[in-house]
Design a protein around this nucleic acid. Sequence first.
DNA 1: CCAAGGACTTAGCAGTCGAGTG
DNA 2: CACTCGACTGCTAAGTCCTTGG
Length: 572
Amino acid sequence: MRNSKTGSNSLLSSRWEEEKYEDGVKWKFLEHKGPYFPPDYTPLPDDVNFYYNGQKVKLSLAAEEVALFFAQMLDHEYTTKKVFRENFFKDWREEMTEEEQQLIQDLDKCDFGELHSMHKAKVEARRNKSKEEKLALKEANQKIVDEFGYCLLDHHKERIGNFKIEPPGLFRGRGEHPKQGMLKKRIQPEDVIINCGASIPVPPAGHQWKEVRHDNTVTWLASWNENIQGSIKYIMLNANSKLKGEKDWQKYEVARKLKTCVDTIREQYLEDLKAKEMVTRQRAVALYFIDKLALRAGNEKEEGETADTVGCCSLRVEHITLHKTLDGNECVVEFDFLGKDCIRYYNKVPVIKKVFKSLKYFMKNKDPGDNLFDRLSTTKMNLHLSSLMPGLTAKVFRTYNASITLQEQLNALTNKSDNVAEKILSYNRANRAVAILCNHQRAPPKTFDQSMANLQVKIDARKEMLALAKTELKQAEEEAKDKDSTDPKQVERKKAAVQRCEEQLLKMEVQATDREENKQIALGTSKLNYLDPRISVAWCKNMGVPIEKIYNKTHRDKFAWAIHMTEEDFVF
DNA sequence: CCAAGGACTTAGCAGTCGAGTG
DNA sequence: CACTCGACTGCTAAGTCCTTGG
């Protein structure tokens, strides 16, 4: 079933260089096993009971399953939140029989203790499994991956990214999500749309697919409707697939194209700051932020459906504070808002006068809750951007600025004469600069303070050792002066000891700094999504750093296209 | 023009793994 | 050998941006 176009062209050296299909067509042949469904619910054993108002109650299967979802989360802070509890209770009651609904009216009177204990015991038991049992479990999992985890797309066997249907449970949104605690329902084959070529996957016994389609203009293999937001979930290919790789490459090529016209675009929006028309002026300021601060576009969101987060175009007056002067700078804008995933963006940025004045003007006579850019939308912004350069959208600026920053930082920080460890440290520093620009944060690791303290103890111990080594060296030197009968190599040995100690101390101190600087910064997201991998590959080649030091297996698979094609003279 | 739907990328977290260390 | 701690993987939520339809 090979496509005659690509299949016949045996001169092409690799899969990355195969010819493209006509407009919009993503594949000609697609075969897969359908998604993997989570196991059915196992009812509680007889000795594990739910109690309502102190009384033992045998719940119906459906109600029991949902009760267990809640019981499993009892250690989590979620279950103490009012919104979470209310949403859960409402959805739980809908799973109850009429009789149960009649009886169970107050969540506070529910006792999930035995369910909770059972769950904890199960987790514990899993942890304590013997090596053999763990191996058997692993093998069983591998079998599932082997069977469901791959598909055949055109002439390649490809890994599927998420071949498992998401199991039911209680929805956990990020931040103050209005829907937290709602029941995420179990998905049946009857809910699933299959997308494939001629050969149709067999549904689980006794079931049918909701629909089977053969749409080769999309890349997904299966989809279903999710009941919390009413959106569609997809089963798609892994990032290491040809389809995803090509898309990724394309993304960076668009960003590189921006490099060739970014100066003109910047001139243009600086000019637009003077515009009489409100839309134009707001657009200019917003673009200034998108470019300078790598803010996201900021689509409008439906109120009450999601947590209250914003991006550039959806900023409200309350999210910025203007300071005529601050910390010795003029015209400072103080940003404070929640962005994607409720990650706080806090920054104090000196801006040019025209931007500052425009902001003041946009804010005049507005309430804190009003939109800062009331005439602007992401659609308008992107329409404008695409007129400046084909394929240009707001997020291209993030990709462009991230990649160019990495390249500049690598050039500034690394020397060919450094050793590999130093070079890697510099790479991480460059990576960190990007992560800071893109505001990629993480929760400080739970054990952070402890592990920092541990490291400090080690450093202190090493310092003492160093002091001791130095004293011993002096002693040896004295002795060497006094009597020429002593071991002549003693001084050399002591010197070496001091040096070794100093090196180890330095290494630890560097590690401490590195860890401290990285406390709240997540490097992974930019590495995976924003940094043109060809920059890193070329840098590795130039610096003689093995690519494995920068990219792990997953990275190398995903960026196979870049590793394959990049020469050391590549410039973003 | 807008709103809704659809497809795809980007995001942080939790749990597990495995290398390094005492 | 046990322990620790960072690395990695899987998961799925939350964005972006395009298309569709009125």
